[in-house]
Simulated assay, not measured.
Amino acid sequence: MSDTEEERLIAAFRSLAADRRAATLRAIEVQAQMDLAKSIQRSKPIVCSPTEIIEVDLIDKLALAISTHLKPPPIPLSVDLWDIGIIATFLKREPQVVRERIACMPSFPRAIRLPTKNCRTQPLYKAKEIIEWAEKHQERN
């Protein structure tokens, strides 16, 4: 996770906490009072204090906020397949340039076209092969 993403997450957490703190505290207070009343009626001790309820509630909200901002783990380059758009980003070129001038070169890695029922799919390329191909074109001193 980059520093910028981490800073955005921290800001989101702080904003979430600030926006919901008053409402959450009131709801927790009401819930704690209800739990206390039930506990007194049953003559059983309270399982946790209102402070512990606040911590659990905040932890649950933070976990939810984190999960909505997390991305799935990246696919390893050794098995990832790239389309023309990703290759264009990697090579710092426009997709049209990659499609019309680079992918058609004889030395460029062969495309993978996954079968479908009705039509031909877009070409995919092994990320590892694209990286190796690009590194072969490095200037020598």
Rank of each mutant, 00 (worst) to 15 (best):
residue 61 K to C: 07
residue 23 A to S: 14
residue 130 I to Q: 01
residue 39 S to M: 07
residue 107 S to F: 07
residue 52 E to F: 08
residue 133 W to Q: 02
residue 135 E to F: 06
residue 1 M to D: 04
residue 11 A to F: 01
residue 77 L to K: 06
residue 135 E to W: 06
residue 31 Q to M: 11
residue 5 E to H: 10
residue 100 E to P: 00
residue 114 L to S: 04
residue 6 E to A: 14
residue 6 E to M: 13
residue 59 I to S: 11
residue 44 K to S: 08
residue 51 T to F: 11
residue 2 S to D: 13
residue 69 H to E: 13
residue 135 E to T: 07
residue 101 R to P: 00
residue 107 S to A: 14
residue 122 Q to T: 11
residue 50 P to W: 03
residue 18 A to E: 10
residue 9 L to P: 00
residue 85 G to D: 14
residue 21 R to Y: 14
residue 36 L to S: 12
residue 26 R to W: 09
residue 121 T to I: 00
residue 116 T to R: 11
residue 75 I to H: 03
residue 5 E to V: 02
residue 133 W to V: 00
residue 67 S to D: 12
residue 133 W to N: 02
residue 109 P to K: 07
residue 116 T to W: 05
residue 39 S to V: 03
residue 134 A to Q: 12
residue 115 P to L: 10
residue 55 E to L: 10
residue 122 Q to G: 01
residue 39 S to D: 02
residue 133 W to A: 01
residue 79 V to Y: 02
residue 35 D to A: 11
residue 28 I to Q: 09
residue 124 L to H: 08
residue 70 L to K: 13
residue 21 R to L: 15
residue 85 G to Y: 12
residue 10 I to C: 05
residue 106 P to M: 12
residue 62 L to I: 09
residue 114 L to I: 15
residue 7 E to R: 15
residue 64 L to G: 07
residue 130 I to M: 01
residue 73 P to H: 11
residue 13 F to W: 14
residue 98 V to D: 02
residue 106 P to S: 14
residue 66 I to S: 05
residue 21 R to G: 04
residue 118 N to P: 00
residue 126 K to W: 08
residue 16 L to A: 04
residue 86 I to C: 05
residue 129 E to W: 00
residue 46 I to T: 11
residue 53 I to G: 00
residue 21 R to H: 13
residue 66 I to M: 09
residue 112 I to H: 08
residue 28 I to L: 15
residue 10 I to N: 02
residue 44 K to W: 07
residue 24 T to C: 10
residue 126 K to A: 09
residue 96 Q to N: 04
residue 100 E to L: 13
residue 16 L to H: 05
residue 79 V to Q: 10
residue 104 C to F: 05
residue 30 V to S: 04
residue 123 P to V: 06
residue 111 A to H: 05
